[in-house]
Amino acid sequence: MNTYTLYLNSKRCIGCHGCVVHCKANKGLPVGPILCEISHEPLKSVRGVPKTEFKFRSCYHCEDPFCVTICPTGAMKKREDGIVYVDVPKCIGCMACAGACPWGIPQHNPETNKAVKCDYCMDRLDAGLQPACVTKCTTHALKLVTMKVI
C-alpha cells in the first residue's frame, strides 16, 4: 500500500521548473537524468485570457511495479510504505527497469553507471524532512500527501 503521493496545486504552480533542479541538485545528478517533470497543454483562450495549467510528474510508485520484478539483481525495491527505490550498491546499470516501466521513469546516471529514480527523497523523509522538490518549491505549490484508507 502506498503511503505517499506528490500533489501539485496547479493554481500556485508558475512553471518555473525549480522542482526539477532542486531534485537534481539534491541527488547530485549530472546533466542527463531528470527525475521529475513539469509540463503543460498548449495555451487556449478562456474568456479572452490565453490559459494553461502545469502538471507535475515523477515516479508513480506503482502498487505492483514492473521495474522491481524485472530487475535482475534485486536492486529495485519497494519499501513497506510503498516507496520504490534503487538499492544503489546492487544496481549494475542494465536499465532493464527503464524498459519495463510504461513511462520510462528510471533514468541512467552516466557518472555512476547506475539507475536513479524518484524515491520521494526517502533519506530526507526518514530524517523527518520533506522531499527536496517540496521543501524548495518556489511557490509552495508542491505538497507531499500522506494517504489514508477511509
Binding site: C16, G18, V21, H22, A25, N26, K136, C137, H140
Partner: peptide
Amino acid sequence: TWLEGNQHILKGALCAKGSAGPS
C-alpha cells in the same frame, strides 16, 4: 550538501537558479 531559501523569510523556497549554485 544542501541549500534552501531562508525558512524565516522564504519558508525554504528557492528557484531553479538557486539550486544550480553548486553546479
